Simulated assay, not measured.
Amino acid sequence: MTALVEVVRSGFVESVHHGSLVVTTPDGAVRASIGDVHSPVYPRSSNKPLQALAMLRSGLEVADDDLALVCASHNGEPDHVERALALLERAGLTEDDLHCPPDRPRHEPAAEPRRAAMNCSGKHAGMLATCVAAGWPTADYTDPGHPLQRAIADTVSEMIGEPIAWTGVDGCGAPLLAYSLTGLARAFGRLAAGTGTPRRIADAMRAHPWLVAGTGREDTVLMEAVPGLLMKGGAEGVHAFALSDGTAVAFKIADGNARAREPILVETLRLLGETPKDEAREAVDRMAVGAGVVTGAGRDVGSLRVTGAVAEALGTGS
């Protein structure tokens, strides 16, 4: 297993995060890889844009801003919650119809938990609205055998170019499909540089990055900073992104620790020749070193740094 990120405290390497990473070309071929990128993993919420694609194909009708929310792992900020509730209302449903568990907004840890504040509520509202549009039952919409979930599995398999290896249960209660990092990257490339409905998913997320995550989140910050970037993270250290030409990256941190993801995202974008907008440079530079992660008495005393394995794999050596 390859070390991807080192945690450095006072000049001393304190911890190391291992993982796997793949870069695919616009035609879906593997350009570079680190570790095992062909065995199945759970993509977690990185799968949401593909789930949304299946919803659109099954009859979901939403504006692009609401489509971005359907793809989101949002903070539960007021506009996120209000949009999820409005999507349900237009379908003749209520918050009680959501199967995702109650949760608190990220920015209000003392708030009363509610289902609409859970980060997956946009996806679940989209699933329910799709069921109404298609004439499918709503009570069991998260059952793997439900017509919606079968349509999602078929769409995901088509986009990743491989069979689904395993079906589990995600943290929000929806079916969770396992497949390879290579398949995940390939699918993101097809969304980012595709046409028709797949391209609409990418364009909606790129046009409304705040709805995809929220204030201060890496997906929002980086999509705002890099024109044409499509990005979606998932739990347990999974992340995927694609450039406008269809070049795509997917990785998983083996121990699932989220702190390693931002440095990898920024460094991989840099190695691929992507430069953030000037107004976003400070925020992106802080993400690159994990600012605020390695502290002592409330001040930074270290940083996170990406190992040379990533540059070596991409053939840059720098």
Rank of each mutant, 00 (worst) to 15 (best):
H99S: 14
H99Y: 06
C100I: 02
C100K: 01
C100P: 07
P102M: 10
P102T: 05
P102E: 13
D103S: 14
R104T: 12
R104A: 00
R104E: 09
P105D: 01
P105H: 02
H107A: 13
H107P: 05
E108G: 00
E108I: 01
E108H: 11
A110M: 07
A111W: 08
A111R: 02
E112L: 05
P113C: 02
P113L: 06
P113Q: 08
P113T: 11
P113G: 12
R114W: 01
R114D: 02
R115M: 10
R115Y: 06
A116Q: 09
A117N: 12
A117I: 02
A117C: 15
M118R: 05
N119T: 12
N119W: 04
N119I: 08
C120W: 00
C120Q: 05
G122W: 05
K123D: 08
K123T: 09
H124S: 07
A125L: 09
A125C: 04
A125Q: 08
G126T: 08
G126K: 04
G126S: 07
M127S: 14
M127R: 05
L128W: 10
A129D: 11
A129K: 10
C131H: 08
C131W: 05
V132N: 08
A134P: 05
A134I: 03
A134Y: 06
A134E: 12
A134M: 13
A134Q: 06
W136S: 03
W136R: 09
P137Q: 09
P137W: 05
P137R: 14
P137T: 15
A139S: 15
A139K: 07
D140P: 04
D140N: 15
D140K: 07
Y141Q: 05
Y141P: 02
Y141L: 12
Y141G: 03
